[in-house]
C-alpha cells in the first residue's frame, strides 16, 4: 500500500458517498445517470467476486463490501425509491455499445482464460467507460449541479491517483499491471475535459457547471 493508492481509494469512497448523500438528502436523482450507476455496480460485482475466494487484508475486504453496498444502494435509490425523479429521457446513452466491446475484449485480452480472471478483466475495461453515460447526460442537459461536479471530480481523481500508484509500484517493486494501467489511462483521459471545466467554472463559484 502507498499514499497514492490510499488517497485514490479515499477519493473513490468520497465520490460514492457524495453521490449517495446527494440523492438521499435531496430525495431526487435529477441529473444523475442511472445507467452509469448500474455499470459501476456491475464493475464492483464482477471485480470483487474474489471476496469469496481469497483474503488479502481487512482493509481490502471492508472496502470491497462498502463499495458494493453503496453502489447497490445508490442504484436502488435511483430506480426504486426516487424513480419518479429519474430523468430516463436524458439518460439515453446506449450502454450496449459499451458492454459488447468490453465483454469481447475481456475474452481476447486477459491474463488467464479463467472465469474469475475474465470477469476481473471485464470489470477493468468496463470501469474505464462506465462514466460515459453520465458525461453524455451532462452534455445533453447542458449543465450539472455543482454537487454532481464534485462527485465527478473525486471519481476522476481516484483513478488518476491510481496511475501515480502504478508508477510508484513500478519504480519501487517492478509491479506492472498492463491491463489496469492502460484502462486507467483511458478512464482518466475521459475526465480531462471535465477537469478543465471544473477548475475553470465550478471553482469560480457559478453554482451550476454549464457546458459550452
Amino acid at each position: 500500500m502507498n499514499i497514492f493508492r490510499l488517497s485514490g481509494d479515499v477519493c473513490h469512497l468520497i465520490a460514492i458517498i457524495i453521490l449517495f448523500l446527494k440523492i438521499w438528502r435531496s430525495k431526487s436523482c435529477a441529473g444523475i445517470s442511472g445507467k452509469s450507476q448500474v455499470l459501476f455496480a456491475l464493475v464492483f460485482t464482477t471485480r470483487y467476486l474474489d471476496l469469496f475466494t481469497s483474503y488479502i487484508s481487512a482493509y481490502n475486504t471492508v472496502m470491497k463490501v462498502v463499495y458494493l453496498l453503496l453502489a447497490y444502494s445508490t442504484v436502488g435509490l435511483i430506480f426504486f425509491r426516487f424513480r419518479n425523479s429519474y430523468d430516463s429521457e436524458s439518460d439515453s446513452f446506449r450502454v450496449e455499445f459499451l458492454l459488447v466491446p468490453v465483454a469481447g475484449l475481456s475474452f481476447l485480452e486477459n491474463y488467464a482464460f479463467t472465469p474469475l480472471e475474465i470477469l476481473w478483466t471485464f470489470s477493468i475495461y468496463l470501469e474505464s467507460v462506465a462514466i460515459l453515460p453520465q458525461l453524455f447526460m451532462i452534455t445533453k442537459t447542458g449543465e450539472a449541479e455543482s454537487i454532481t461536479a464534485h462527485y465527478l471530480l473525486f471519481l476522476g481523481l481516484y483513478r488518476a491517483l491510481y496511475l501515480a500508484n502504478w508508477l510508484w509500484r513500478f519504480h519501487t517493486e517492478g509491479f506492472y499491471d498492463q491491463i489496469a494501467v492502460v484502462s486507467g489511462v483511458v478512464q482518466t483521459i475521459f475526465y480531462c475535459d471535465f477537469f478543465y471545466l471544473y477548475f475553470t467554472r465550478v471553482l469560480r463559484g457559478s453554482g451550476k457547471m454549464s457546458l459550452p
Binding site: H12, D50, Y67, Y111, G174, F175, D177, A180
Partner: peptide
C-alpha cells in the same frame, strides 16, 4: 504480490 493475476488492488 507483483504478479498481476493475484489482484491485491481495489
Amino acid at each position: 504480490s507483483s504478479d498481476p493475476i493475484h489482484h491485491d488492488e481495489l
